[in-house]
Simulated assay, not measured.
Amino acid sequence: KIYPEILKELKRRRIIKAGDVIYADRGYYSYDNYVISVREFKIVPLIFPMKNCNFNKLFNMLRCPLKIFDSKRNTQRDIKFYKEIIAKFKELISKWKEFRSIRSIIEDVFKLAKKAYSIEDLHRYTRSSVQKYCSLAVLLVGITVNYGIKGRKELQALSE
């Protein structure tokens, strides 16, 4: 449920734009999340699939949204853009196992946030309090990774 909210916020802050690739963990796996990514946000979602993922079903769900057939739009250009996004998605998701190293780095960063910056035992009870606390932890992780960590082994050592 939180995935579309995350994408809205990233789009609002101009962190993602049409055509970008988003890497996400299996926790965000859902056919709907793939479809929302392509149709509403025009991004390529590389959400690591579960073992029981039916790729044929998933690929059949990815179609151009009907709203692009509005007479005020350049329909051909929009259809071409969606086809490019879908083709890029099919290419990446078919070889998702090659991206395990990226997933491993993502897991190491989250482990750093949870262990070193105490997000694991988050005792906050309001949304704004959680947002402030997590934002501070994300800032600290960003500073740590940007200025202090030069390799994966250092990242793993710091998080333990």
Rank of each mutant, 00 (worst) to 15 (best):
R63H: 09
K153L: 12
F110N: 13
I86K: 02
Y28W: 06
I85V: 12
V130C: 15
S30V: 03
F99H: 13
K17L: 01
D32N: 14
E107C: 04
I119D: 06
K67P: 00
S71W: 05
S128I: 15
T75Q: 15
A137D: 07
V38W: 00
N56M: 06
I43C: 03
S104I: 02
R127C: 04
S135T: 14
K97T: 12
K153F: 06
I119G: 08
Y125K: 13
R127V: 13
I143N: 08
K111M: 11
L62R: 02
V130R: 14
L155N: 04
D20A: 03
L62G: 03
R73W: 02
I47S: 01
R39D: 09
I16Y: 01
P49G: 10
E40H: 10
L112F: 05
R152P: 06
A116D: 05
E9P: 02
G27L: 05
F48V: 05
Y147R: 14
K114V: 06
P65K: 11
L92I: 12
E5L: 13
N146Q: 12
N52Q: 10
R26V: 04
K114P: 03
H123L: 13
K80I: 07
V145K: 07
P45L: 06
L58W: 00
D25V: 03
I2P: 01
F41E: 04
K51G: 09
F55Q: 03
G148D: 10
Y82Q: 05
I93T: 04
L58M: 07
V145I: 15
S37C: 06
Y23Q: 04
Y3P: 01
A113P: 03
G142N: 15
C134D: 01
A137E: 06
R63S: 11
K114Y: 08
P49V: 10
R39I: 07
S71C: 04
T75Y: 03
I79H: 02
A116W: 05
L155W: 05
K95W: 00
V130A: 14
